[in-house]
Design a protein around this nucleic acid. Structure first.
Lengths: 253, 253
DNA sequence: CGTAACATTGAGGCACTTCAATGCGGGTGG
DNA sequence: CCACCCGCATTGAAGTGCCTCAATGTTACG
């Protein structure tokens, strides 16, 4: 029980897992560095999960896994930001989602991952062997239920993005994005309205289905309208959250 | 076991469920017409599911459930086509997905549905009380696993649509759509290349993030290029599937 | 056969893209 | 410590793909 089953915590306070894989440039395949462990006997599901967990560092702008890789692991982000990327043959890019601490990936896939995962910032992930992970889920309905809910939330969020990409204007998209980032930003400093964007304009553009130039122009426009302050390109102060909400066409329908 | 756990079959051969709700114009809330039933004792999960199932008819262009409704049921489509709809306050519409026989909806939601479900054609759905349904999943890991996989497939399909909506051109979208519909069309007649679209141009447009006029123009363009034949507005013969695949920019990446 | 809903086609406009140049910030080496 | 440089961001000008508005054609149905 404890803190509602370890998978929602944003800080990996006590990483019982070991064998942190050293950071590698362009590291792709996680190394299976921990051998077979005895099945836990203490009984709690969380402990069992930790038994099969393994910490892995992912350096900024390196690849955690590539599109088409065998889906051999489930990951949970514990630090940093990563991006889920899909490509068209000619190079057009779509960032399906950004992954932040507490987020999971690899729960739902079949034989191979249909996307790449790349680190936006230096990041740490908790890695679980997929087979073992699923076996644990099978053995504990509570755990299964918890991840069922996580996947449900992911699905809903993705559907919300369909609406954004299919029907919202560029301005609405950026407003939605900023509000979303603000929500996901824990209020660390007293300054509640400072949003630190870990990603580049290119990433924002590929996340919103726009071009770099359009995103940049929109930031400038919002600044001119006194809706935001661009402290630096990646440090945004939201002056008028109310206006952003109007602009985002939040679904009141 | 039988046929891999009833949830993938496209034809509801033996609807053990009863109490078909009479068709209603603009019927929205499903009526709880069957009282509490005793928990099944025969043991198999499929039978248990059937015990809590209830058939419901949904007339063409009526609403099965509305955005914001309490998420009290899980549904499986057994006949017909439905659409999952999200709206912006000003009326802009997004069709998140089309639901066809075998598809499920309501698995993943929280308290309320964040979308509406409307019937494109006359349809029949199997309805399960959500609480009971989840209890069954909890009690049977095999069943849980099966629906876990279903949700995973839904999620992957939705992510694929993100790519389509964010980065594909109008032509690529329509080509992808036609191929997708062709795949989902069971080869009933010998004519393998006839695709019967159950939905209007407006539905196609809202599914692809385009306007009716653009969709119509694209159909005409494909006809002019001898890629398809428009037997009727909703009966499309695919003459050159190879060209459609080229046009769709199928992810070979 | 008339009508209403849907689909098609055309003309013009605009939001976003593309192409191109300039600005800026952070790191490195002299 | 400063100059240089490289990558990213910004800004401008021109182009275009899709949308909007409008009219006509087609189908289904009474």
């Amino acid at each position: 029980m404890a803190q509602a089953l370890a998978y929602t915590d944003k800080t990996t306070g006590s990483p019982a897992a070991v064998a942190a894989v050293p950071m590698r440039r362009l590291a792709s395949r996680p190394v299976r560095s921990n051998g077979e462990r005895p099945v836990p006997v203490d009984g709690t599901a969380e402990a069992a999960l930790q038994q099969i967990a393994c910490l892995q560092q992912v350096a900024r702008e390196t690849t955690l896994l590539e599109d088409g890789d065998a889906a051999e692991h489930v990951y949970k982000v514990s630090r940093g930001t990563l991006r889920m990327v899909k490509l068209l043959p000619d190079g057009r890019r779509c960032i399906t989602r950004f992954l932040q601490p507490g987020d999971h990936v690899g729960l739902s896939e079949g034989e191979t991952y249909p996307f790449a995962i790349e680190a936006v910032t230096d990041a740490t992930v908790v890695r679980y062997p997929r087979r073992r992970f699923q076996a644990l889920l099978q053995s504990d309905p509570r755990l299964m239920q918890a991840f069922f809910s996580i996947m449900g939330a992911d699905l809903s969020a993705t559907q919300e993005r369909l609406l954004l990409l299919s029907r919202k204007s560029a301005t609405e998209r950026l407003a939605s994005f900023l509000l979303g980032m603000a929500d996901r930003t824990e209020s660390d400093a007293a300054e509640d309205n400072l949003v630190e964007l870990p990603m580049s304009r290119a990433d924002v553009a590929d996340y919103l289905g726009l071009t770099i130039e359009t995103v940049s122009r929109l930031f400038s426009k919002l600044r001119a309208q006194r809706v935001i302050i661009l402290r630096k390109a990646q440090q945004i102060v939201l002056l008028r959250r109310d206006l952003l909400e109007e602009m985002s066409e939040m679904e009141l329908a």
